[in-house]
Nucleic acid binder design. Structure first.
Lengths: 209, 209
DNA sequence: CTACACGGAGAGTGCTACTATCCAATTGGC
DNA sequence: GCCAATTGGATAGTAGCACTCTCCGTGTAG
């Protein structure tokens, strides 16, 4: 198919398809002439993937590019791929690392050590936890990493189940995409469900103010 | 204190403090002259709250404004406040509602009905779940709302605990801020821990490729 | 043969979150 | 009481992001 058909097929403006092509999110079509190329179903699927990552996951274009690059990299193992999905959800700390922040970061490292979790020392999630802890303290809450415990327990249960169910998948391409999409989309799903559960429990607790 | 002291005290550029003042995120100081005002600790705390919501929670200024307005609104009950925190995390669907999306939305409503959760029919989280379901299907996954079940169970357990522990708080102002900050910050915390747990379980499963 | 479509590139748009400049009024150190 | 520095307030400018538009010279379908 030609680019305008691809555009219609994916339900995206032609200009947007060209933009994704320029940005390297969408693989180039098979050139049939200096200014003509042929696209197929794989391009339609890729566009859907891009839009899901953006519309559902809320990822920026730059992050999507890196996630897709990891998916496309045949040399990456499945375990590495979980890292890629992880990379996709990393927030990218905005606040400068203060002294209090560094202390919080050390406590987070000790906490993870205590949990016995085997995670990279440079995982960005560590920084996010440190930021959260430092933020809570900065707002006057006298808390330690023990407040993370119930969350860690819930995350541990859920992640163990997720890893179990995602592993026995078919081809690498399929498995890899499931892993990445699953991590991102179900992250959003859990967050939405948690908010709904808050509302539900807050209502049934009968606290009127 | 004067504005420049406030700026130094909160560790933010003066121009940024002025910006938050203009945008209505930071309450005005007590005017002592046509062009002079007095600020206090409550202003410092408010600035910290704003930065935590932005740096840790990743909220945009407009959303922060609405959250703060809800916190400041004395007429809102604690239950309403959970709604305000909820509002703070709503993603704001970006994709246009297609036919497939509308079908997904109906299934989500039925699913929540089946769970027995009492949630507003206009909760934005419903749309997010519909978007997630439609997105998964659009990528070729033949799934129904039953894939949400394990997540709903985990979210239910966690939210029930959160509502229990947050309710018996002191003054309204403190409780309210705890609720909002907690919902947002611990949302980030859970997400970070889930990613770390993925990495840990993926490593210990011993899948090398 | 000619009107429309193509790929490619550059510039322009709208939005967000600041950041900088200007102003007249006011203040604090001498 | 003087004057540089600071203040509150307003306006304008900037940087980054995700498109979106316009051009251009070349192809292609009816």
């Amino acid at each position: 198919m030609r680019i305008s058909e691809l555009s219609r097929g994916a339900g995206l403006p032609l200009a947007t398809v060209k933009y994704y092509l320029r940005e390297g999110l969408l693989q180039a079509g098979r050139a049939t002439a200096p200014n003509q190329a042929e696209y197929d179903e794989s391009h339609v699927h890729r566009l859907r993937l891009i839009r899901t990552l953006r519309d559902v996951g809320g990822l920026e274009i730059d992050r999507i590019r890196r996630v897709l690059a990891a998916i496309d990299d045949e040399s990456l193992s499945r375990h590495d791929l979980f890292g890629a999905a992880t990379l996709a959800r990393e927030t990218g700390r905005r606040a400068a690392p203060t002294e209090a922040w560094r202390r919080a970061r050390e406590e987070v490292d000790a906490f993870l050590e205590d949990l016995g979790w085997q995670v990279r020392p440079d995982a960005a999630a560590r920084d996010e936890l440190a930021g959260a802890l430092a933020g809570l303290r900065n707002l006057g809450r006298d808390v330690g990493t023990e407040v993370f415990r119930p969350y860690a327990a819930a995350a541990d249960r859920l992640a163990a189940w997720e890893v179990r169910t995602i592993s026995p998948s078919e081809s690498r391409t399929v498995a890899v995409e499931q892993m990445v999409v699953g991590t991102i989309v179900f992250g959003v799903v859990f967050d939405a469900l948690r908010r709904l559960a808050h509302e539900h429990h807050s209502a049934t607790t009968g606290d009127a103010g």
